[in-house]
Design a binder for these strands. Sequence first.
RNA 1: UGACCGAUGGUGUAAUGGUAACACUGCAGAUUUUGGUUCUGCCUUUCAAGGUUCGAAUCCUUGUCGGUCAACCA
Length: 556
Amino acid sequence: MSTEKGPNFLEEIIEEDVKNGKHGGRVLTRFPPEPNGYLHIGHAKSICVNFGLAQQFNGKTNLRFDDTNPEKEETEYVDSIKADVKWLGFEWANVFYASDYFDQIYDFAVTLINKGLAYVDDSTAEQIAALKGTPTEAGKPSPFRDRSIAENLDLFTRMKNGEFKDGEKVLRAKIDMASPNMHMRDPIIYRIKHAHHHRTGDKWCIYPMYDFAHGQSDSIEKITHSICTLEFEVHKPLYEWFIEQLEIFPSKQYEFARLNLTYTVMSKRKLLQLVNEKHVSGWDDPRMPTISAYRRRGFTPESIRNFATRVGVARRENIIDVGFLEFCVREDLNKRANRVMAVLDPVKLIITNYPEGQTEILTGENNPEAEDHGGTRELPFSRELWIEREDFMENAPKKFFRLGPGLSVRLKHAYIIKCEDFKKDADGNITEIHCSYIPESKSGSDTSGINVKGTIHWVSVPHAITVEVRLYDRLFKVEDPSSEEGDFKEYINADSLQVINNAFVEPSLKSAKPGDLFQFIRKGYFCPDTDSTTDHLVFNRTVTLKDTWAKEQKKD
RNA sequence: UGACCGAUGGUGUAAUGGUAACACUGCAGAUUUUGGUUCUGCCUUUCAAGGUUCGAAUCCUUGUCGGUCAACCA
C-alpha cells in the first residue's frame, strides 16, 4: 500500500479547476494579513497552504496587506510580516496593499449606489445594532434605507470630502434585513475615520470595511483561489454578492480550519495582552507561538514548514499536540545541529591520577548524524572537570548508568573513569567527586577491554566558558487555556522560564552567534540568543532531547 | 429557539461505494561512546439509530455533540 497521502480538499478543488481549464489553468493565491501584529504559527500554516498550493500548481502568490483600519495598523508590522514570510522560505509574486485599491473600491461603492444597492445611513452604531435583529429574529429596515440615489451619491461624496464627523454616517449595502445570515442584513461597507493611515496618510477619511475590501482586492488582483480560515465562511455569500453585483473578476473563497496548538493561545488579542501586560518580554519572547519567537528560539524554517505540511488541511476544528511541533524540530535539528558539551548544573570532578597542570587536546566528532559527521573539533581535557550534578548519585539504584561510589562511566570523547570518593558539605550537598582514569581507555584508541554502560558529558574547568542559559517550558499549564473557565491568564505557567546564570560550555563555543544551531549532548538543542554579546553568551533551549530516562524515573 | 459548517484511535490526517491506513504519542525489545539517533514489534479508530446497496467511514433520513455568525475589527 502506498504511503502517499491522498490530496487534501483544496488540492482536489484546484486540480479539478486546472483540469477544466478554469482561468486558463492559472492559479493565483494570496496571503492577506492585516499589519496589526506579529505573525504566529497559525499564520505560518496559512502561508504554507497558500504559497504551497500555488507552487504545486505552477501558480503564484501575492502578499497583500489588508490595511483598511488605519487605527490599528503600522509599518513596523508590515516589515516584520515580510521578514517572517521570507524567513519561512517563500517568495511572493507581488506585495500589494488593500490601500492601493482605495480609489477603485470607492468607485465600486459609487457603482453600487447607482444601482440602488447601497445607501447612506445616519443612524448611530447602537441604532443600527438594534435594527439588525438577532440570529433567530429578522432585522428591520433603517429609516434611511430608501433614500434616493441622488441623495446617496451626494451624501457619500460629502462623507469622502470630510464634511462629517466619525460615526455620523455610514454607507451600507442594501441587501436583505431578514436574511438568516447576519452578514447579509445591509452590512456597513464604508465608515468615517479621520485617522492617519500608515500608507495613504490623510488622503482618506472614509475607509472600506473588510467585506468591501477583501473580495474586491482579490478580484482586482484576479486571485483564482482565495483561501482563508473557517470563521470567514459566513462572509462568503456577501463576498459573492458583491462580485456579482459589481460584475468583477470572480475570485472564489475557500475555507479551512485554523491551526490550534496545545499549551498556548493563538489569538492576536490574547498574544497582545501577554506582551502588554509583560507576561513575556515581547512578541519574540521564545515562549510565544509567533514566527519571530520560534526563529529566536532556534526553530528552523524547514521544521515549521514540515510541521505545517504534516498537520494537513481540513475543515474540522483541531488542536495539535505541541509535542508534534517539537518532534518536527528535533527531527530537523538532529541532522544539522553540531554536538557540543555544556554543563548546566555543575559539580566538580577531580581525576586523582591525572597529572596536575597537564592539558591534552582530544578530538570530538561534531555530528554523527550528518553526512560527513560534521567534521571534528578540539576538546581540551585536564585533571579538573565540570560534570552534571544529576550524573552522580551517592546511593545509585541498579539501573543508574552514571557515577556513584565504585561506578564507572566513559567521559564522552575521553577516558573511562571510576569513582573512588566524594566530598559533601555540611548540608549534604556533593561538592567534589574523586575519580581515577584508565589511560588505555582513550576514545578512539581504547585497548582497555573495559565496557561501561554510561557515557557522560563534561567540560574542563580551566577551559570552560561561563554562559547564561535560558530554559523554556510551555507558557500555559493547561492544554487549551482558551476553553478553561475564567481568564486565560490564570493558567499561565509561572515556571515557563528558568534562567541559569553560570553554566559552563566547551571553549569551541567562544565564537557562537545567533543563527548557529547546537545540540548540547544529552541536554537538548540550544542556540545563541540575540541578547548575546562577545563577553556574555546567552543560549536558548530550543527543545529538550527525548528523555526516556526521565520518564522512567517519573514512574517510580 | 435560527442559519451555515463539522464529527475516523490519545492527537492529527488518509481511504472519493469494495481489506480502515500513515504520522505523532504511548508500551515492549534490539542497536548505540548522547538513557539521543536508528531499527523491530505492539496497543488503540469510523458519534448514534434507521434506510439504500451484493457491499457504507463514504450515499439518504433523523437524532446527538461540537464550531461559527448579532464589531462603524480583520
